[in-house]
Simulated scan of single mutants.
Amino acid sequence: MKLSVYLSGEIHTDWREKIIQGCQESNLNIVFSSAVTHHETSDSAGDHLGAETEQFWRDNKSAKVNAIRTKTLIERCDVAIIRFGDKYKQWNAAFDAGYCAALDKPYITLHSEELIHPLKEVDASAQAWATSVEKVITTLKYISSN
């Protein structure tokens, strides 16, 4: 079975690359997509639509352009992996989880045990919670097997 997997959340570690590599090494038939993970590129996504004099409006315009990409990729995926890191608050990841829940799109959360309490509502709607990339890969192996 071919799966489409959307990778959402924390951008400061290599968890995406590890999942992709682990799935490739296991010969899983998975196509991965993700939000733009380069800060400057994401922050300037709406700049081509015209200059803004206030930061709020620049951020607002770029957020809307980024949302076109995110919403489209989430709607097209079979399952989303949503990573919450320990160092920064990933408000965008929480939003993506909520969007998945609203669409009844299956998602797996990936985070440490220290975040169980603050993410209890997000995890309650998830189909699985993993504490490591390896557990995510094992889950993907199971759901993509014939």
Rank of each mutant, 00 (worst) to 15 (best):
F95Q: 02
Q127E: 12
T41C: 08
S125N: 08
G22R: 07
T37H: 04
Q21R: 15
S4F: 00
L28A: 04
E17I: 03
W129P: 03
T72L: 09
L73Y: 05
I108E: 05
I108H: 04
S8T: 00
Q24S: 07
L7T: 08
A67S: 15
P106F: 02
R76M: 13
Q24Y: 05
T131M: 09
S4L: 00
T72Q: 12
H12L: 14
V5H: 00
E113K: 08
Q21T: 13
A80K: 02
E54M: 13
V79E: 01
G46M: 02
E40Q: 15
E10P: 04
T138Y: 10
N27Q: 09
F56N: 02
S42D: 10
T109Y: 07
P118Q: 09
V5G: 00
A80D: 03
K61L: 07
E17S: 10
F95G: 01
D96Y: 07
C23R: 00
F84G: 05
A97R: 00
L73E: 11
K18H: 11
G22F: 04
V79A: 02
C23N: 03
C77R: 01
A128R: 11
E17Y: 03
L28F: 04
N60L: 04
I108R: 03
N27H: 06
T13G: 09
A128I: 06
D104C: 06
I137C: 07
Y99P: 06
W57I: 01
A102T: 08
S62N: 12
Y142N: 11
A101M: 13
I116V: 12
V36R: 10
Q21F: 11
T53Q: 15
I82G: 10
G50S: 13
T138I: 09
N92E: 13
Q24V: 04
E10V: 13
S62G: 09
N66L: 12
D96I: 05
L119Q: 11
I30E: 04
Q21G: 08
V5S: 00
A97F: 00
K141N: 04
T70W: 01
T72M: 08
L3M: 01
W129S: 09
K18T: 08
S144F: 00
L7D: 07
R76W: 06
Q55L: 15
L7S: 08
K135Q: 14
S34M: 07
F95L: 11
G46D: 03
R16H: 05
K87R: 15
I19L: 05
I68K: 14
S4D: 00
I108F: 04
N60A: 07
E52I: 02
R76S: 15
V136L: 03
H117I: 05
A101L: 12
C77T: 01
D123R: 13
